[in-house]
Amino acid sequence: MNNSLKIDSHQHFWKYDSLIHAWIDDSMAVLKRDFLPQDLEPILEKHQIDGCVAVQADQSKEETDFLLELAGKHVFIKGIVGWVDLQAKDLEEQLSSYFENRKIKGFRHVLQDEINDEFILKPEFINGLSKLAKFDFTYDILIFPKQLASATKAVRLLPNQKFVLDHIAKPSIVNGELEEWKRGVSELSKSENVYCKLSGMVTEAKWNNWKYDDFVPYMDFILESFGSKRLLFGSDWPVCTLSGDYEQVLQIVDQYIKNLTNSEQAGILGENAVDFYKL
């Protein structure tokens, strides 16, 4: 198993701009600076992680181009999840041009910020999602628990599309939210074309004041629902630093999976990401 790649399936880079990154409010002041490959690379090396997937943090073509440019210069960035307007009239032409750059693996839209909880079911959006599989692009689902029902309907409409749920759908761990989230996750996970990232948990707990046990009921249910072959480790760096450093975030997952088989551990810590994103 020592030959398997270790991959961080979810992190971000940005050159901080108060307008572009308006979501970074004053409670997140530690994020109000640049986070670039030279900041992450030594952290990955320290933890013997072979590479990462950089995910969009801004909904613009410029963001996708920025991530592609970074991936072209840094071999440890194994793939990127960019943004594209899935409702654009010329979407197919855009996807075709992106397809020529093998570093781009898929796309994401910040569904959690949409006022309409059923935004993903808009006919124009579903039509856009339906075009991704032709180019072998994945789709990252970024939602809150209240949006799980509409996401489930969407993935059932597109059984040939590969999806991955980001941040276990962001349940309110700080409030111990479980029941509504469990119902939604249970339904979504029945679709075999949906994977899930063990990521983004520390920022849903009490910032810098959580304990490992806070996450166990959530990880238990995610493992039970998706099985080990559809789980991917992601750090959500640098957003995770609001509530814990890289080492702590990795340690939560490492500790949780230590009773699984070697091959299951290797899958969650990298091989599943390699398969899902074709890294």
Rank of each mutant, 00 (worst) to 15 (best):
I222T: 00
Q255D: 10
V110P: 11
N160P: 01
K162T: 06
Q251M: 07
Y98L: 14
V164N: 04
K197C: 10
I115M: 11
H10S: 06
H10C: 06
W207S: 06
K61L: 13
A54S: 14
K170I: 08
Q251F: 07
Y212L: 00
I268Y: 05
V81E: 08
D236I: 09
G270M: 04
D8P: 15
K258E: 07
E271K: 08
Y212W: 06
K258Y: 11
L68I: 10
E114S: 14
Q59C: 13
L223D: 04
P159E: 09
G128Y: 11
R102E: 13
I120D: 05
S9L: 04
N209I: 03
F107Q: 14
N116W: 15
H21I: 09
Q255E: 10
G234K: 07
V84Y: 09
Y246C: 02
L121T: 02
V194W: 03
L132M: 04
E264M: 05
D213N: 12
I257W: 00
Y256R: 02
T152H: 08
V174D: 00
Q48M: 03
Y139Q: 14
P42M: 05
I173Y: 03
W23A: 15
R102Y: 13
S150F: 06
F226C: 08
H109L: 13
V216E: 02
K146M: 01
K162V: 03
T261M: 00
A57P: 14
D214I: 05
Y139K: 14
E192M: 10
L95A: 10
E187F: 02
L142Y: 12
A149L: 11
K190W: 09
T152S: 07
K182T: 04
D140Y: 15
V216H: 03
R108E: 06
F137V: 03
V274T: 13
L148W: 08
S225G: 01
F66T: 05
I120Q: 02
I104L: 14
A266W: 09
A29L: 12
E41S: 08
K103R: 15
S235L: 00
D113Q: 13
R156Y: 01
L31R: 10
N116Q: 15
M201V: 04
V194R: 01
E62D: 14
L148F: 08
Q56S: 13
L142N: 14
D140F: 13
S186N: 07
Q87G: 12
H167Y: 09
I126A: 06
L5I: 02
G270C: 08
F66S: 05
I80A: 10
F144N: 13
S18Y: 15
E187C: 06
G51H: 09
P238D: 04
Y139C: 13
D220T: 03
I143Y: 03
E264G: 00
E63K: 15
D26N: 11
A29V: 01
E124Q: 14
S60R: 13
S4L: 04
G51P: 11
D50A: 09
K197P: 12
P159N: 01
G184A: 12
A151V: 02
F137Q: 09
W237M: 06
L231H: 00
R108N: 00
N208S: 11
F135L: 14
K46Y: 07
F226I: 06
K278N: 10
L250Y: 06
L158A: 01
N3G: 07
E179G: 11
I257V: 04
S4F: 01
F233I: 01
A273R: 10
